[in-house]
Design a protein around this nucleic acid. Structure first.
Lengths: 384, 384
DNA sequence: TCCACTTAAGCAACGCTGTTGCCAAAGTGC
DNA sequence: GCACTTTGGCAACAGCGTTGCTTAAGTGGA
């Protein structure tokens, strides 16, 4: 297998063309099992547990795990205590079997990570970047950083590169749209340009989407919903609904910053009035972090109300600089909502936590753009 | 096949337990083909077209359609014009092969429909209903109406019953929660009670979800996103994302009415301030329909911004009574958004239209709760 | 110590899936 | 009238998870 092939067991799954045949079925089940192995982590999962979780027969699980072991993606991990019979053998993912690269193309900095199959970063690089300086400089910087990351690698196959940058852009075609502040990028096919330059498959997505996808790997495959709110120079969101990242038809979902929460409020740069982003950034500018958090909290409550999500994650430079007031303010807004909407089936307040990864949340998530298709090709939001 | 079995070809699909085996694969492909046949309508689809759309080989399509024809679910529908070779045979769904029943349990009225496989109503009944009068009266009324509908049927097998009522409730368990205004319903297992009484499988969902699902059958299977906004005695929404109904983890999604759009606005019955519902209903109460439409429009713009949906559908008694001001007001709000957010990749304004079905939108959608699983088991929002 | 019982896991045979290879049917167009 | 294209079914096939059975490896009571 050449270094940029995906593992054959997990190819295709049921994505892409909707008609399913035997290889697709095989890939689907292999991805499902790989996803469970990944979620289990170091401790591993036993074959009977895999059978129970997937609904497959034990014999099928044995065959599938045998193939995964033959490809080097899974390995035995000791024995479980007996439950009255032959003790089960635990199986675990072999994280180092493949690597992925994540690129966070921010306005002033390029963060590059190489991660293992578990999504853990094994190498990180940072370089200054002038996003508005044009394509050639960006491609050259990216090529240099990725080459450096690959040089450190001891021959582990790299599956591909995930690239995350500020939106708007089209994930499906890999083309940038009118990036705020850098209009000349409009229409540039960044995904294909990067793929040509790097000689690796590339997946492009918005920074907020990449971050949310990366954070979704803490969830059991195919379940769980959360919103990731990213407050930096702007305000955006990544939505994970029913275990899957929701991008919307044009990769336009998650424009959280321009939700109107004060109809008659101050005018925002977008032309409308009372956007969360305008209220939030104005409060930040006058050092009123609790005020910014309150605005964020109103938006978060709207999000929870509309999408029935399980938790809210916060990230982005502004939040990371002073996490406490934001966590407190948003938590309070959601607790308030839980109280007022209580009724007899009292709703628990939605937890608000800081997103894992700190300044590397987006870069880690970018790598996850490459890794996610290998694991648990479970459909997102339930369709009936 | 007994009258309440689902067609065997379309059983299971890939829903439920995520592990897939051969029957699941067969069901998935059969459902996919059935979905395409349904979308094609009277004109039908040819085998080569089905092969192109599904990615299956022509031979596989031949086998699958042969099974569907043997079960009476599909039939030939004439010949296409030749394109230089043997002319293709069109295939179409046989709508009358199975029926479904939809129940709209509204606060003061029970609407009951019997539909064919295409989702078209073939019989409709209405009866007064006091939702707060308790379970026994409701079950008796429902049983009487369903029996009357089935009596008119000329032996066509009925797949099951979809029941739609005001939320909150849990679709997965079929249990009602604290229905606004009728607290004694809290915890009542309405789905199972109906199933016992009617002797048919029952699916329970919120009225807004049922309506949205019913409206989704105008979309190609597995694609398209819209929001259905329902303005009656309250304000709610049904969300179709990526072709599939999005319910949220606890069937709590779509609480559109209590989105805050005027942070410092008037207090709402829910305890918070500036909810769309409060603003909207207050405007309706003072006969200011344009004002109500403006509030609805702000909420719709937020929805479009956050979820990147393709269109907005309006329904519910208040809208149906005077559609024009609502259509105009919401259209204007979204056009405004498109103008201000234009940029170089000018966004087209999101169309706003009246939901199909008028006063029967919810009842038709309730029947669709039963029908939808038979067609195009395509996952909802893209995961990757 | 032995033996009955339980649980784990693989081998072999099997049924059924969509695929491939092939061929007949039924059109078009030179 | 012949060459060509397209449709669509028959037959053989590879490969999927399943079933039936056997062996391995523990626990726990007599």
């Amino acid at each position: 297998m050449s270094s940029n092939d995906l593992p054959s067991v997990a190819l295709a799954a049921f994505a892409g063309s909707p008609g399913a045949n035997l290889p697709a079925l095989r890939g689907h089940n292999a991805a499902l099992v790989l996803g469970l192995l990944r979620t289990a982590g170091e401790d591993g999962v036993s074959r009977p547990e895999l059978a129970a979780h997937t609904g497959l027969t034990p014999q099928a699980v044995s065959k599938i795990t045998a193939r995964l072991r033959a490809e080097g993606l899974a390995a035995e991990a000791g024995r479980r205590a007996s439950t009255g019979g032959k003790p089960a053998t635990a199986l675990r993912l072999v994280p180092g079997a493949r690597h992925a690269i994540g690129l966070h193309l921010d306005r002033d900095e390029l963060t590059t990570v190489r991660t293992d199959l578990a999504g853990e970063a094994v190498a990180v690089r940072r370089a200054p970047l002038a996003f508005e300086a044009g394509a050639e400089q960006l491609l050259a910087t990216a090529a240099r950083e990725v080459a450096a990351l690959r040089a450190e690698s001891d021959g582990t196959p790299v599956l591909g590169v995930g690239a995350a940058c500020p939106g708007p852009l089209d994930h499906a075609t890999g083309v940038l749209h009118r990036v705020t502040g850098s209009p000349h990028w409009d229409g540039f096919p960044l995904r294909d340009a990067l793929a040509d330059r790097l000689g690796l498959p590339v997946v492009l997505d918005k920074d907020t989407n990449a971050a949310a996808l990366g954070l979704a790997r803490d969830l059991p495959p195919g379940a769980g919903s959360f919103g990731y709110l990213h407050l930096g120079t702007g305000l955006g969101a990544g939505l994970v609904l029913g275990g899957g990242l929701y991008r919307g038809p044009r990769t336009g979902a998650g424009e959280f910053g321009h939700q109107t929460i004060q109809w008659d409020g101050p005018r925002c740069g977008c032309g409308r009035c009372g956007c969360i982003e305008a209220l939030c950034l104005a409060a930040v500018a006058r050092d009123d972090l609790p005020g910014a958090a309150r605005a964020l909290g109103v938006g978060a409550a709207n999000l929870v109300e509309l999408l029935d999500i399980d938790r809210v994650l916060l990230g982005g430079r502004t939040v990371l600089a002073h996490p406490a007031p934001f966590l407190d303010g948003v938590t309070e807004a959601l607790a308030d909502r839980a109280r007022t909407r209580g009724g007899s089936t009292a709703r628990a307040a939605i937890p608000v936590v800081l997103a894992r990864g700190g300044p590397r949340t987006v870069a880690d998530g970018a790598a996850e753009l490459v890794l996610a298709p290998l694991f648990g090709a479970v459909p997102a939001p339930r369709t009936t």
